[in-house]
Design a binder for these strands. Structure first.
Length: 882
DNA sequence: CATTTCACG
DNA sequence: ACGTACGTGAAATGT
């Protein structure tokens, strides 16, 4: 069998990981980010490369033969931070657990160990892969040895064979040291020739091949200054080349045989990974507890429960009390019309499991529908809606583990009951473990299913007090009990009612689109001179940029970018481009909105029943899935027509749409207390025009459409957490110009500037920001030393209180609106929420009442120091409600 | 299963 | 110097 050696540069990868990742700590206070990053890289490379031999090389101490030769070698390098150096022993411990050979040698660097072992490997017929973050390694590349360099921190690697080195630098691997000799290396304090950077060095080497040859032919070099510099620093160049040269014959004591990669002891690995709290790695390795090994599921406690049958149920009827935890086990991810396996109940003493065929139990039906009987659940809305499809009413929900977990940390994406339980120190088998996942998913036998569902109710019961206390601790209890929990019911009703969609209208539009798309496809293929898949960015890129030789504007990591903003810049470069843009636009309508929506119309109701997810966004907004009804086209007329298909579900009714005008900027005015912005809204001015007047210092009638457009972009930028780069991209202007706009904006809106500074300071101090209703978002990266992570966290700190307060306000309006509709016995129904607008269906005789009621409720949901403004429109379809 | 693109606020 | 605008979800392609 082919022998394949993989050598990792331990110091290089660990330190790259350290700077790329946030500073993770375990409960014991161990820093682990470098170890974590190193391990993910290691596992990925093992997976991709499947080496037979494996070695990790480390530097040993500061003194090496290079420092003897040149005392300033690595002289200017910053001292390794303690948080990083503390991680090397941990890393070695982890490597030992994995049975991976690691090695260091006094007086030598990791580079030299790698150079030497790879030379031995070549001599013994191995192929070798070196993994490092250090470009110097490229000198070791050969037919048998490749180098993988980390990119973007450690998230990607770039593989180099001789061909790639040639392609990138136009040099052979051996010339890499000549390159270093000429240009030096600031990070290692290798001098090179002052004033010679990569560009000049490459030019010289393309002509003269080596440092020595350059020095021998100084007189032939173009440029007098350059000649002088090279002549003056000839010795530096020679020494630099020597310093950059990696040894291939260091006196290493490690042998190739010792690097054989052998299977590791799972227990040891599990114990190390657990100590470092690398849960995701345990999962990735399939070592996550006993689940993966087919052993009985975790050390989860057995509980006693009674399975309800026709015969025994009467005896349990009076055990249905209040409060009680209820688990409604819904089979599918999409709960509309989904099968229900069963319902379990727990109140600390009584534990029941009701298989769904016993769900008709009259005592249970009555208890479930009684709002006085308090229920604690996991995912209130799912339970309510799934039962509603079976004509079973569920009322009286007063705790929801899912929503509580979400409010405690809205950035967390995983709120599975088993994971929440674990965070609170309890064990519960995951659904994946019980049902299997993907293709292997199936319903287990009753002896497994019943206990699992029973345990869920028990878990909810035990979680409730702890989570309730946690919510109070964080000041989230009011938001939870007074807003999110009542909202779940409101949303559940909206989803259950659904929205009528006119299938025929969609069909008609579909036919029209198909014809247009066929015509476009033909024209595009003709202009391209060949048939290809226009939907494939790869094939399209080849046509546009290789075949037609259009200029490349932007690249993605896999090839040419063909996104709309790129194509728009090329619109006049070739007549094919506008056709592609049109094809894209119409194709999107056809696949996502015509075909996609038709698939979602339910047989049973003739309506679309979306699901609003109340526990996904980090800001507090809702999201909508299967289908997403929060992104139905509106900006372009062709797409907007889709809205013609959204119609009332009762004959003669209307669709009413009510949207907040500029809610985010109004919130900004309130929380920043910026006098200028408050004034603008109190006068009810066009805010973008007003911004243009102030920023450009002109009168209202002098504001051009360009000025207004630019002011609008600045306002957007302010809400998003401004950066000159982002604004420059959006407006297609230089970064300098963008920075100027921002500066002028802040000089006029000084209160906004003060807010932005304060909120960042607050985030740095507390580690989180809050909305007006105390919704919280943690920003763990706000004090990161990594510029990107920190900047992102800062923009988030600026944006989240604004976007999140807007979410708070419309949620309040929804709960109040549902209450008013009920109190006033109106027939109108709330159908949808699209972040800053609410959509209703309204009988004709309620149009006036509803128009007034909706604006009153929305405008007064949360009083601010500026008025909230709501526009209300109605029509025979969503399209006409504009 | 990741990547790219594009629809919305 | 660093390289992004904030928040989502779905479809199509290609590994």
């Amino acid at each position: 069998m082919e022998k394949k050696l993989m050598v990792l540069d331990g110091n290089s990868i660990a330190s790259r990981a350290f700077y790329a990742l946030p500073l993770l700590t375990t409960d014991e206070g161990l820093y682990t980010n470098a170890v974590y990053g190193f391990t993910t890289m290691l596992l990925r490379m093992l997976d991709e490369e499947k080496p037979t031999h494996l070695l990790v090389a480390f530097d040993a101490g500061k003194v090496t033969f290079r420092t003897e030769e040149y005392k300033d070698y690595k002289g200017k390098r910053l001292k390794t931070p303690g948080e990083l150096s503390a991680q090397f022993p941990l890393l070695k411990e982890l490597l030992n657990a994995f049975n991976i050979k690691h090695y260091e040698l006094n007086g030598y660097e990791a580079d030299d160990i790698i150079g030497t072992i790879s030379a031995q490997a070549e001599a013994n017929g191995f192929t070798t892969l070196i993994v490092s973050g250090d470009k110097d390694m490229l000198q070791l590349v050969s037919d048998k040895t490749r180098v993988a360099l980390t990119r973007k921190g450690i998230s990607e690697v770039e593989l180099y064979s001789p061909a790639e080195v040639e392609a990138k630098y136009g040099l052979t691997p051996a010339q890499i040291i000549d390159l270093k000799g000429l240009m030096g290396d600031a990070s290692d304090n290798i001098p090179g020739i002052p004033g010679v950077g990569e560009k000049t060095a490459l030019k010289l080497l393309h002509e003269f091949k080596t440092v020595e040859n350059v020095l021998d032919h100084v007189s032939e070099i173009k440029g007098k200054k350059l000649q002088e510099k090279i002549a003056a620093h000839a010795d530096d160049a020679r020494m630099s080349k020597e310093l950059a040269t990696i040894l291939r014959d260091a006196p290493i004591e490690v042998t190739l045989e010792e690097t054989v990669y052998q299977p590791y002891n799972q227990e040891k690995v599990v114990s190390v990974l657990e100590r470092f709290a690398f849960k995701s790695l345990l999962e990735r390795l399939g070592l996550n507890s006993a689940e993966a090994n087919g052993a009985p599921v975790q050390a989860q406690e057995e509980i006693d429960f009674v399975t309800i049958t026709e015969e025994n149920r009467e005896a349990w009827a009076d055990k249905l009390t209040s409060p009680m935890a209820v688990m409604v086990e819904v089979d599918a991810e999409n709960y509309h019309g989904a099968p229900i396996h069963g319902i379990s109940l727990a109140d600390g003493t009584v534990r029941l499991y009701v298989p769904f065929d016993q769900a008709g139990w009259p005592a249970l039906i009555k208890w479930m529908a009684d709002p006085e009987q308090k229920k604690w659940v996991y995912d209130a809305k799912r339970s309510q809606v799934a039962l509603a499809w079976k004509n079973i009413q569920l009322e009286g929900i007063c705790f929801d583990v899912l929503l509580a977990s979400y409010l405690s940390n809205p950035s967390e994406t995983n709120h599975r009951l088993c994971d929440v339980a674990e965070r609170y120190g309890m064990k519960l088998a995951s659904d994946d473990a019980v049902y299997g996942k993907g293709a292997k998913r199936s319903i287990p036998e009753a002896s497994i299913l019943g206990p699992h569902i029973a345990r869920k109710a028990e878990t909810i019961y035990r979680l409730r007090d702890k989570m309730d206390a946690a919510l109070k601790e964080e000041g989230l209890d009011e938001l939870f009990y007074d807003l999110e929990l009542p909202l779940a019911t409101v949303l559940g009703d909206m989803e259950t009612h659904g929205v009528r969609v006119d299938r025929q209208r969609l069909d008609e539009m579909g036919v029209e689109l198909t014809e247009k798309l066929e015509r476009l496809t033909k024209q595009i293929h003709e202009l391209a001179g060949t048939e290809f898949n226009i939907n494939s960015p790869k094939q399209l890129g080849e046509i546009l940029f290789d075949k037609l030789q259009l200029p490349v504007i932007k690249k993605t990591k896999t090839g040419y970018s063909t996104s709309a903003d790129v194509l728009e810049k090329l619109e006049s470069a070739h007549e094919i481009v506008p056709l592609i843009l049109e094809f894209r636009q119409l194709g999107k309508l056809q696949s996502t909105y015509i075909e996609g929506l038709k698939k979602e119309i339910r047989e049973e109701t003739g309506k679309i029943h979306t699901s609003f997810n109340q526990a996904v966004t980090a800001t507090g907004r809702l999201s909508s899935t299967e289908p997403n009804l929060q992104n139905i086209p509106i900006r372009l007329e062709e797409g907007r027509k889709i809205r013609e298909a959204f119609v009332p579900s009762e004959p003669g009714w209307f669709i009413m749409a009510a949207d907040y005008s500029q809610i985010e900027l109004r919130i900004l005015a309130h929380i920043s207390q910026d006098e200028n912005l408050i004034d603008a809204f109190r006068r009810d001015m066009d805010i973008h025009t007003r911004t243009a007047m102030d920023v450009f210092g002109v009168d209202e009638d002098e504001v051009t459409s360009l000025m207004r457009r630019q002011a609008k972009a600045v306002n957007f930028g302010i809400v998003y957490g401004i950066s000159d780069y982002g604004l420059s991209q959006n407006l297609n202007i230089t970064r300098k110009k963008a920075a100027e706009f921002i500066e002028r904006y802040f000089s006029v809106f000084q209160g906004v500037k003060r807010y932005m500074d304060n909120i960042i300071a607050e985030a740095k101090k507390n580690g989180y920001v809050t909305t007006m209703l105390k919704r919280r978002r943690y920003l763990p990266d706000i004090n990161s030393r990594n510029f990107n992570l920190r900047s992102f966290a800062e923009r988030t700190a600026m944006n989240t209180p604004i976007q999140g307060t807007a979410a708070d306000i419309i949620k309040l309006a929804m709960v109040n609106m549902a209450q008013r509709i009920e109190e006033e016995k109106l027939a109108s129904r709330m159908l949808l929420q699209v972040h800053d607008e609410l959509i209703f269906e309204v009988p004709e005789h309620e149009l006036e009442t509803m128009g007034k009621l909706v604006s009153e409720v929305m405008e007064n949901a949360l009083p601010l120091d500026v008025p909230l403004k709501v526009d209300v429109n109605y029509g025979k379809s969503w399209y006409e409600a504009k």
